[in-house]
Simulated assay, not measured.
Amino acid sequence: MTLWPVRTLFCALLLMPVMVWAEVCAEDNMGQQLCLPEPAKRIATLSPGATELAFAAGAGDKVVAVVNYSDYPEAARKLPLVGNHTRIDLEALLALKPDLVITWRTGNPPAQMEMLRALGLPMFAIEPRTFEGVSKVIEQLSILAGTEQEGFAEAERFRKGISLIAEQYRDAEPLPVFYQVWQTPLMTINDNHLIGKVIRLCGGANVFGDMPRLVPRISAEVVLEADPHAIITGSVEGAEDNQLDRWQSYTGMTAVAKNNLFFVPASPISRPTPRLLEASRDICQRLDVARERE
């Protein structure tokens, strides 16, 4: 057996590539800077939206824990569950040894989040409320996961898609729209909500856009008074169900008289993720139909 001289072996070792990770830092939606000594390898996502955004950032293969209803993309359905977004199974979560926990700013229980923080787990709180915010979160997550190439490309795809829709509907005739979030109690959204921004993107005029609360409760009487020309709600896969049946008896309402009661897939429109692009196109198409019936 031939042995390399010590000097030759030493030179060969010097020429071998060495993976050296630099510290990675990103700012979350609470304005907090998080720095990791190296890109995260084991990520826990504590809301369905956080799960989607982690996958959009190219970090899907690094996600080791999710919560209930993390159903998109399909690969997320196979990941270990650690409770739901309002109650986390801390023991199950800690057993999976995450080196990054992506939380939902207003959805996760504050007491449990403080407990995780006290245990020293790196926490990154997100909840984008604008189109640009969605792109920015994807970019920040990709930085923390070391997947910038995929994440920044997806963020830019989303930006360009939204810009194209905005240009297409820039001069669209405004159409009074009521978006029904829930039927009992009756709930809607204002213009600060991302769904409200989608309606405006498509040239719609949210009849409850000026209300102070993000998701206000309302009465049937105020809907009748507002007289929307289109009513939209989310349902499973956008299939028609009984959620809008209550309005059928109000034949004097323009939306009912013109048969402008529309259903769109609930999941894409209700989560601030890249699927908002798909949801925006759906809503724009529905409002195009309503304009043709004016």
Rank of each mutant, 00 (worst) to 15 (best):
I162E: 05
Y179Q: 02
T147L: 02
A145H: 01
L144N: 03
Y169H: 15
E150Y: 05
E156G: 06
V177K: 06
Q180P: 00
Y169R: 15
L144C: 03
I143D: 00
G146R: 08
I162S: 00
A155P: 05
F178R: 05
F152Y: 14
A172R: 11
Q149H: 15
L175R: 03
I165T: 12
Q180G: 02
A155H: 10
E167H: 12
F178H: 03
P174G: 11
G161Y: 02
Y169N: 15
Y169M: 13
Y179G: 01
R159W: 01
L175S: 02
E148G: 00
E154H: 11
R159D: 09
P174F: 08
F178D: 04
A166V: 07
V181D: 02
A166K: 15
E156R: 13
S163H: 11
V181S: 09
E154D: 03
A145P: 06
F152D: 14
T147M: 05
Q149K: 15
I165V: 14
P174K: 10
F152V: 14
I165M: 15
A153L: 12
Q149F: 11
L164M: 13
R157I: 05
V177M: 07
V177G: 04
Q149Y: 13
I143W: 01
L144R: 03
D171V: 09
V181C: 04
F158Y: 12
E148D: 08
P176N: 09
L144S: 02
A155S: 09
G151E: 04
